[in-house]
Simulated assay, not measured.
Amino acid sequence: MTRSLATLLLLGFVGRTAWAADPPPPAKGVLRVATYNVALYRGRSGQLAGELRSGNSQQAKQLAEVIQRVRPDVLLLCEIDYAPQDDPPRLFAELYAAKPQAEGLTGIDYPHRFAAPVNTGEPSGLDLDRDGQTDGPADAWGYGRYPGQYGMAVLSRWPINEAATRTFQQLRWAALPDANQPHDPATDEPYYPAEVWEQLRLPSKSFWDVVAMTPVGPLHLLCSHPTPPVFDGPEDRNGCRNADEVRLLTEYAAGRLSDYFIDDQGRSGVIAADEPLVVLGDLNADPNDGDGLREAINDLIAGPRMATDPKPTSAGAVAASERLADLNADHTGDAANDTGDFGPDGHGNLRIDYALPSEDLRVVGSGVYWPKPGEEGAEAAAASDHRMVWVDVATAER
């Protein structure tokens, strides 16, 4: 596996203090923004809420411990069920994040939250996987066993301007200019019949522009969780969809395709060029390794409005890559940048979770919360197969 100088330093030439997993608090006037795939989904609707309501979910306690060690001001949670009647994000915030989860830690309050409907588990009434049925999890607008599975939520210390916040759950894939329509390689015919293709939604969960009213001004959080580019066939329908879901972030942040971006409230348009943003989410796309069409994620990282990629790192990612050397043998990316440990699935370690600021924000710190085995926080970090990614930003003039 290719190893950069940064990786070699992590492996043995940087002291423990310099690479302590728990980051120091951000300086005054600096915002810590993070994304975290918490894997808080269950096998049936309502199961997660019941578990959280008990106050005794071991997984939720460990996830909250990670949050208390990193202490982001604003946090996107991926894979937490959307269930407005039970409100799992509120239960998690109030019963777990707000209560100390380890010696020396203090709770963190997130009085402001945002969640909205997602496509996962929402029946389409169509046979999307061509198995002759229309009611399977792969026939939903986004793969899911029940509506709201694998949802998203934003937790914030600062108020959220819901009037300015936009959701794009129902964007049609076929309407995207130059869409990556999947084709059957054996026939070169479109995989989806025309009448199905015209109805398909592009976001597998949703795409949000959430506006947090921070002490340094409004901050746009571009939140999404594209489908994994696997679990399909030679037509690569999930790879095509993943690439176009990632492209949504690139086009919206760059201020392009204004007519395409009609939100769920019926408003069209894209973000203004002078409004700072951070792209957040489990994007299921690695710029160097794994499956997927890598051009899309590299276009996002190098987008015209984006700051230089902060490339967050951790020592734990390097240790995990070494532990699974056979699975990672053909990887060319720097293992220090990995954000997920997918050894049990046979995919090795990848960088697929992102916190990418726009160029009108100054990056003053970043990291992946991934302690090495035996370090404080390592057991808690293993509560999800993803690791929290965070970035500290200040306005450009600071």
Rank of each mutant, 00 (worst) to 15 (best):
Asp109Met: 03
Ala60Thr: 14
Glu295Trp: 13
Tyr82Ile: 03
Asp73Ile: 02
Gly217Tyr: 06
Leu63Gln: 08
His225Ala: 01
Asn119Arg: 06
Asp73Cys: 06
Arg16Pro: 09
Ala18Leu: 12
Gln47Pro: 02
Pro24Glu: 13
Leu277His: 10
Arg237Gly: 03
Arg42Phe: 11
Ala64Cys: 05
Ala27Thr: 12
Gly281Gln: 01
Phe168Cys: 10
Gly29Asn: 02
Ile80Phe: 10
Asp73Ala: 08
Asp259His: 10
Ala394Pro: 02
Pro226Met: 05
Gly367Ser: 01
Ala64Phe: 02
Gln199Asn: 07
Asp392His: 04
Arg44Pro: 00
Val270Asp: 02
Pro371Val: 14
Asp259Asn: 13
Met1Val: 15
Leu5Glu: 13
Gly132Ala: 10
Thr339Pro: 04
Gly348His: 03
Ala317Met: 12
Asp286Asn: 12
Ala174Asn: 11
Thr187Ala: 04
Arg201His: 15
Phe231Arg: 12
Glu322Pro: 02
Gly12Thr: 07
His220Gly: 04
Ser54Phe: 00
Arg130Ser: 14
Val74Ile: 15
Ala285Val: 01
Asp139Ser: 03
Met306Gln: 13
Ala285His: 00
Ala320Glu: 14
Arg44Cys: 12
Glu94Ser: 13
Gln170Asp: 08
Pro228Asn: 01
Ala27Val: 04
Ala355Glu: 03
Trp173Arg: 05
Gly266Glu: 09
Thr35Cys: 08
Val230Trp: 10
Thr17Gln: 10
Ser45Cys: 06
Ala383His: 04
Leu200Phe: 06
Ser224Tyr: 00
Asn298Val: 13
Cys223Gly: 00
Phe13Ser: 11
Pro276His: 05
Met213Tyr: 00
Ala336Gln: 03
Pro72His: 09
Phe168Thr: 11
Pro100Leu: 07
His220Cys: 11
Glu189Met: 04
Ala243Val: 01
Leu91Thr: 02
Trp141Pro: 02
Ala243Asp: 00
Pro117Leu: 05
Thr227Phe: 00
Glu295His: 09
Asp263Cys: 09
Ser206Lys: 00
Met1Leu: 14
Leu257His: 14
Leu248Phe: 04
Glu122Asp: 15
Tyr143Val: 06
Ser156Asn: 04
Tyr260Gln: 05
Ser384Trp: 03
Phe168Met: 08
Gly266Leu: 09
Gly269Leu: 07
Met388Thr: 01
Arg113Gln: 11
Glu195Pro: 00
Ala140Gln: 06
Leu95Pro: 05
Gly377Lys: 08
Gln181Glu: 15
Asp131Asn: 15
Gly269Cys: 08
Ala20Tyr: 12
Asn298Asp: 09
Ala115Gln: 14
Leu324Tyr: 13
Ala254Gln: 07
Ala27Trp: 06
Ile67His: 10
Arg247Gly: 01
Leu91Asp: 09
Arg305Met: 11
Asn56Phe: 03
Ala115Ile: 04
Pro234Tyr: 06
Phe13Pro: 00
Asn119Glu: 12
Gly121Met: 06
Leu222Pro: 06
Asp334Phe: 02
Ser384Thr: 11
Asn298Arg: 14
Gln62Ser: 14
Gly125Lys: 14
Ser314Phe: 11
Val33Cys: 05
Lys99Ile: 15
Thr214Gly: 08
Glu322Cys: 09
Ala174Asp: 11
Arg294Phe: 13
Trp158Thr: 11
Pro218Arg: 05
Arg201Trp: 10
Asp129Leu: 02
Leu257Asn: 15
Tyr150Thr: 07
Trp370Met: 06
Ile80His: 10
Asp188Glu: 09
Ser384Ile: 08
Pro287Asn: 06
Ala383Met: 01
Arg44Asp: 08
Arg256Pro: 00
Asp353Leu: 02
